[in-house]
Computed example of a mutant assay.
Amino acid sequence: MSTTASGSGDGRFDPSLSAIMGERRQLTNLAYRLLGSLADAEDVVQETYARWYAMSPQQQEAIESPGGWLTTVASRICLDLLGSARARRESYVGAWIPEPLPDRMEWVAGMSDGITADPVDRVTLDESVSMAFLVVLEAMTPAERVAFVLHDVFRYSFAEVAEMVGRSPEACRQLASSARRRIRASQTPAPQAGRQAGVVRDFKQAWEAKDIDALVGLLDPGATMIADGGGLVRTVLRPIQGGDQIARYLVEMAGWAPGLTILERTVNGQPGLVAQHDGVTVTVAAFDVAGDRITNIWAVRNPEKLRPWTADPSISAGERSTT
């Protein structure tokens, strides 16, 4: 976006520009948590700024809190997108998983397709972007999700949330309360970070060794694995239930791509794994761990969701499949 949009027309710097653009990271963080997609979040931020700069200088000056205005507009755009996203995902090939994010130190610079690697735009990695948390958000209604994220994550008052989403404060309070119940119902006691990393590391070693017994020992008997290929790469289209079935599938998957390299990485702020083939990231796996066992695996293979993980998002022809 051109930084001359808020200029006076004579080339002089507009001191309000810095404050307005300073809201960009907050807006990106909000939109990603609401939509589960970095690409969609970036689109929302761009559209929000486009609406700001479409106003006359007089209209801009009349807004008491530009940051609040930007947040309100972004929230309303996200609310509209969440409604349409449900319809789009009904036609999505296989399961839809939120877009995984790398640790800020591992973010690949020079990404294309409109996704910026500017440090000020990076999403803050905390418990509110863990894959387990985002998956629960996906199960909420759009109104629940927006009310909960704005109030419980970003600490806006219910009066402010009501103004942003066009509902009464009491209605927003009830929506957030309903969302909180969903979160509590899905939560399991989280292991210490070091212990979770150890479980994931042991899983990596068992996967590399194609040791089905070791994999089964690390998986909860009722574990679930969900894969997202978007119809662009070979993967299962339905969740795999049970530790034994998951272990056998993972060993079979390793056989599809000889020479697969598995790396320990931070995925959405939690210990995870990245699989690379010929130096290109082909799978990013996030885990939910309870005690010493893995209860959930989310494997993202859709290359359109892996752009932050590799400078070359292309994949080999042999990887492409609609099955």
Rank of each mutant, 00 (worst) to 15 (best):
G269Y: 08
P303H: 09
A193Y: 13
L150G: 09
Q276C: 14
L35V: 09
W52Q: 02
Y249E: 13
W52A: 04
G259K: 00
E61K: 07
W309Y: 05
L79H: 13
L263K: 14
Q205A: 12
E61T: 02
F13W: 12
G231C: 11
F13E: 15
L250M: 15
S75R: 02
I315D: 03
R184V: 11
L263R: 14
V146S: 11
Y156F: 15
I115M: 15
M55I: 01
T283P: 00
G269V: 05
S168A: 10
D103M: 01
P239G: 02
Q241K: 07
D43T: 11
D288R: 14
P169F: 00
A257P: 00
P102T: 06
P98W: 05
A290K: 10
E264H: 09
P191Q: 06
K204W: 06
Q60Y: 01
Q205H: 11
L263P: 00
A143L: 14
P119H: 10
Y53C: 02
E23G: 01
G22F: 04
R145N: 03
Q205P: 00
L34P: 07
K210W: 02
R122E: 10
D126C: 09
S178D: 10
I262G: 02
F148L: 06
S6K: 02
L35N: 08
F148M: 04
L81M: 15
I212C: 04
C78W: 03
R238P: 00
L237Y: 03
P239W: 00
E252Y: 12
D220G: 11
E170L: 09
T283R: 12
E304L: 14
R181T: 04
I97G: 02
I294C: 13
R173M: 11
W107E: 11
S18V: 14
L219P: 11
P303W: 06
V280H: 14
P308W: 04
I294Q: 04
P303I: 10
W298L: 09
V251Y: 08
L35S: 13
S37I: 08
N302P: 02
D292W: 03
V146Y: 03
D211C: 06
A50T: 13
R167H: 08
E64W: 01
R122V: 04
D211H: 05
S177T: 10
G22Q: 05
I183A: 05
L263N: 11
P221Y: 12
